[in-house]
Simulated scan of single mutants.
Amino acid sequence: MRKILLPTDFSANAFNALKYAVSLFKYEKSEFYLLHAYADEVYSNEAALTEDQFQEKKANAKKNSKSQLKEILAAIKELSPNPKHQFFIKSSYGLLVDKANDLINIENIDVAVMGTRGKTNEKSLTYGTNTIQVMKYVQCPVLCIPENYVYKTPKQILFPTNFLIPYQRRELKLVADMARSYRSEIHMLYISKFPINSYRQKDNQSFLKEQFKDDVFNFHRAGEGDKTEVILKHLDFMNIDLLVMVRSRHTYLENIIQASTIDKIGLQPQIPFLVLQNYHREIM
């Protein structure tokens, strides 16, 4: 049973991510959890409200949240009436990351899927604030879907790595399962002027090969250079459908997310981007 979290702010981008998710997992028995956290809507302009007005605003936000979730549920069921899929809606008064992590732990969620931008849709930014926060702080993999991206079977998967960090078996299984479902090729990209020599790197490389043993597994090495340029170059000439990167301490991805410099650095893939969270999960 696959369990997918779908944070939504009721934007077109969020619904497009939902459509991608039901297409990606169309062959799997899956549970989809549509989550809307509405605390930010309630807190806006709160200073000008009396206590009664604040409570009324909170009640209205909850009512509107539940109503719109039901509308989305009806729309996706009509669009994709898959008997393998079950849907659940969750309206929560709280911050998105907190409520997402609560649901992840309670339901043992496998992956969160969301749009790269939300309702504000700031065109100057590749990733919206909520998406960045979810990538940084939620306790499960996050699959980000670009605006207006039309579903395409992920036949070619690019996985840049330096082989220096140990990987979570559960996180890799998600990638392996997707690859097996579509008979995809996984391309491991090592960016360094030095060959893999350390025992740590060799052990981690062997572990990756073991996890992907039933898949088409390719190893590529690129010389030392700007990591963003190297990654974007490989996305283009290898016709990649899905970019996978691991977020862990002291990694390239961790550094640019923490510094909020994704747009400055230029890592702006126009394809789905799966961020693996390489931390131990506490399941309730």
Rank of each mutant, 00 (worst) to 15 (best):
L96D: 03
T161D: 08
Y149H: 15
R180C: 08
D98H: 12
T153Y: 02
T120H: 02
R117E: 13
K173G: 06
I106K: 13
L143F: 15
A176M: 05
L158K: 04
S184V: 05
A74M: 11
Q156H: 03
I186M: 09
N64W: 04
K202P: 05
L73G: 00
V175I: 07
I76Y: 06
E171D: 15
Y149K: 12
I104F: 00
Y137L: 12
F163H: 07
I76N: 06
S192L: 01
F159P: 02
M135K: 04
H85F: 08
Y149W: 11
L208M: 04
A176T: 12
Q205S: 02
N121T: 10
R170K: 14
A100K: 01
P195G: 07
K193S: 14
P146G: 02
T126R: 07
F207R: 04
N101I: 02
Y190P: 14
V142C: 05
S206F: 07
K99L: 09
H85M: 08
Y93Q: 04
H85N: 10
E71A: 00
F159Y: 15
K173E: 11
L174M: 10
Y151P: 05
N105A: 15
K77I: 01
L172A: 11
E122I: 08
L143W: 12
N108F: 07
S80D: 09
R200Q: 14
M188I: 09
K173Y: 02
K119R: 11
D177S: 00
G118I: 09
N121M: 02
S65D: 09
